[in-house]
Simulated assay, not measured.
Amino acid sequence: MKINIGDVVARKSYQCDILFRVIQILPSQAGTLVAGLYGEEVRLIADADCSDLVIMDEQERSSRKVKQDELLEQSLYLLHQDYQLLREKQEYYATGSYSHNESFFHIPGRVLHLDGDPAYLEKCLTMYEKIGVPVYGVHCHEKEMADRIDNLLDKYRPDILVITGHDAYSKHKGDINDLNAYRHSRHFVQTVRNARRKIPSLDQLVIFAGACQSHFESLIRAGANFASSPSRVNIHALDPVYIVAKISFTPFVERINVWDVIRNTLTRERGLGGIETRGVLRTGMPYNRKE
């Protein structure tokens, strides 16, 4: 079966474990055709010989999508539970625990989401909107992020910055600690460094950085509050959204326990980690409803 750009495929040598989109097809030195692949649900970039690929039919794709949607809804439900609890606690503290009849308003943290994949960016923006997080989304190739970050920070002035896209560790390119063995980790690291030169405070600008199999330790050392991937595993396309939502809805007077942030994500501590960080939500009163 001929493989074409845009096909949704899986790798036979990996027991068809992950669905990919074919983004390019190029001849190899061996005379075969090699496909460039982007993960459909995980932020992984890969190459594979076209002979190793099988096109996934609509029925199989739909079946996998149902399972993914169930996991997403479960995470979303837990996130809403957390938000409701945080909101009630913040209102209690804001009033000094006195009873009153005033209404409150909440200002969650503003997000600038930089993504190397336009399809994933749209998925994330849809989820941000569903959750209620104010966000600006920018599609930017991973290699260009470091050069553009200064102007983007000036333009959008976010409370939270997301730097993500696609990544992968290639064992044949070097040791696991060698940044050159990763597809885009060094670009993510430089983007974090440039952002921290502009806004050094870990609480003034909260940064999530990384994608599948990214070099977690380098991203944290560069100044990220949260990053992927401690165990060099794949992360789900929407994992950054859940981390950001937790930060956005946590009051600025509270510190976020790292486990509380990652426990509702799909890949949890193997794929995501970070450091203790303040929330960015602010509560005000009174809320004047329009008649």
Rank of each mutant, 00 (worst) to 15 (best):
G284Q: 04
A35D: 01
K65E: 15
H184V: 07
D154Y: 03
I262Y: 12
E291Y: 09
Y92W: 06
G284V: 06
P27S: 08
C16R: 13
C212K: 02
E291R: 14
L179T: 05
E144K: 13
H100T: 09
D47F: 15
E144M: 10
L78C: 06
V34L: 06
S228K: 07
T95N: 05
E60P: 00
L125F: 05
F216W: 13
A146F: 09
I220S: 03
D17P: 00
A181Q: 03
I18Q: 10
E217N: 14
I256Q: 07
A30C: 09
R193V: 14
Y38I: 08
Y120S: 12
Y120T: 08
M127K: 13
A30E: 15
D147S: 12
Q24N: 15
A30T: 12
Q90W: 10
L72E: 15
C50P: 02
R157L: 13
G137P: 09
D260P: 04
H184E: 14
E70D: 10
L76C: 04
V133Q: 04
V233L: 14
P118M: 01
L219A: 07
L112W: 06
M285H: 12
G174V: 08
E88Q: 15
G279Y: 05
Y128V: 06
F249E: 03
K155Y: 09
K171C: 06
D147R: 10
T283D: 01
I131H: 03
V253K: 07
V206P: 05
P240G: 04
R148E: 14
I25T: 07
A222G: 04
F20L: 05
N264E: 11
A227I: 04
D150L: 06
Q74M: 12
E142L: 06
H139Y: 13
S63W: 04
S185T: 09
S201V: 08
N234A: 15
H100S: 10
D147P: 00
P118H: 01
Q213L: 09
Y14T: 15
H172V: 12
M56C: 13
A222H: 03
C50L: 02
D178K: 07
N288G: 04
I207H: 04
L76E: 12
Y14M: 13
Y120M: 13
E73Y: 07
Y242H: 04
S63H: 11
I275M: 10
H166Q: 08
V162W: 02
V189Q: 09
R196Y: 05
Y136C: 11
S62K: 13
